[in-house]
Design a protein around this nucleic acid. Sequence first.
DNA 1: CCTACCGATCGGTAGG
DNA 2: CCTACCGATCGGTAGG
Lengths: 206, 206
Amino acid sequence: MGTTTTKGEQTRAALIEAAFELFSRQGYHATTMRQIAERTGLTPGSIYNHFFGKDDIFLSVLSAYHPLNQFSSFMADSKAETTEQFIRLLAEQVTGELEDQPGLLNLFFIEMVELDGQHLPSLVEEFRSQVMAFVQRVSSGPVQSRVLPIKAFRVFLGLILAYELSDRLVQEALGDEEIDQGGLDDFVDVYLHGILEPKDKVKKEP
Amino acid sequence: MGTTTTKGEQTRAALIEAAFELFSRQGYHATTMRQIAERTGLTPGSIYNHFFGKDDIFLSVLSAYHPLNQFSSFMADSKAETTEQFIRLLAEQVTGELEDQPGLLNLFFIEMVELDGQHLPSLVEEFRSQVMAFVQRVSSGPVQSRVLPIKAFRVFLGLILAYELSDRLVQEALGDEEIDQGGLDDFVDVYLHGILEPKDKVKKEP
DNA sequence: CCTACCGATCGGTAGG
DNA sequence: CCTACCGATCGGTAGG
C-alpha cells in the first residue's frame, strides 16, 4: 500500500487487535492491561505510550470493530433488483460477517452492559447515513413496503439479532445433536411475508 | 403467606435481590462482594454463610430472574381466540415485563459475554416446556402458520429483542427529542404479515 | 519501550 | 454474623 505506517502506528494497531480479541471474549473488566500487553509482546507500562488508559483502548476498539461498519459497502454493492432480493442478500451478507467475526456482537453487548451504553449515541450517529441508505433503497423499489421504512429497518436489525442469538442458543442447547443449519431463509421469509397466510388478514378492531 | 421463612432464608433472598440489581446494572466483574454486602446490611465475610462464592450468587440470581420465567403464565392465562390476538397479547405482556424490569435482558447478556454462556444450556432446558406450549398454541389455531412453529417461535423471540434493543438505541440517540412510543404494534404487524404487500409474492428461482 | 514500583482493592478465610 | 486479615492482582506512574 502507498500509505506508510510508522512503528508506533503499527504497535497501536496491534494493541487494538489484541484488545478486541480479549474484550470480545472475556468482557471489559475481566480483561487486564497485562493480557493486552502480553499479546502484543509489550510491557504493561508501554501501553500508556499509545493510549490514555483502558477505557481509551476500548473506545478505539469499538470504533474499529463496531458491527455496523460493513453495512454501507454491502448496500452500495448490492446488485439486487427487487426489494425481496435486496433484503435476502443483505441478510445473508450481514449474518455471514457476524459468523466470521462473532466478537462483533459481543462487543456491542459489552458496551451496553459493562460500560452502561455511554458510547452508543456516537455509534448511532456514525450509523445514521447507512440507515438512510437502507430506507432510501426499500422505499424506492418497484414494490412498496407495508410499513414505514425506518420501522422496517429496526425490525430488520432485530431479524439479524434473532437469527444470531437464537442460533447460539440452539447450538449451545443441542451440543452435538443435529445442527439446524441455514434457517436464515425462514427468518427472512417471515420478515417479508409474515407468519400468517394472506387469507388471515383480519381487520383490527378500532 | 402460610410459608414460614427462617431468618437465614430471608437474608439469602435479600442477598439475591441486591446482587440482581448490582449485576444487571454494572455487570458481573464490576460488582464486588462488598457492594452486595453493603446493600444487604452485612459484612462481606458473612455472605459466605449463604453462598459458596461470587459465581454461586450469580447462578442463583440467574435462576431467580431469568427473562423467560413469566412466559408460561402469560401463555396459560391468554384469553386470545385467534393466532393474531395471541401473538399481539403475548408480545405486549412480554415487552411490558421487560420494561418493568430492564435488568432481565442485561442479565442474559452478562451471562453470555462475561460468563461465556456456561449456564445457557440449563436455562434453555428449563425453558423447553414453554417453547412447546407456544408451538402447540400457534399450530392448533384456526389459521395455520406459514412456517414451522419452532421457527416462528425463534423469530418471535427476535421480535421482542428487536423491539427492546432498538428502543434503547433510539432513546439513547434521540435524548430528549420526540419519543417514538408504542411502535410495538408495527413490529408485530411485520411479524404477522411481513413488510411486503401480498401482491409482491414473487416465486424464488429454484 | 522497559524496569521497578505504587496505592487500592479484589475474593475469600480464620477464628470466634 | 462480625472482626481482622491474607495473598493476589489490578490500573497506572516515575524515571530513565
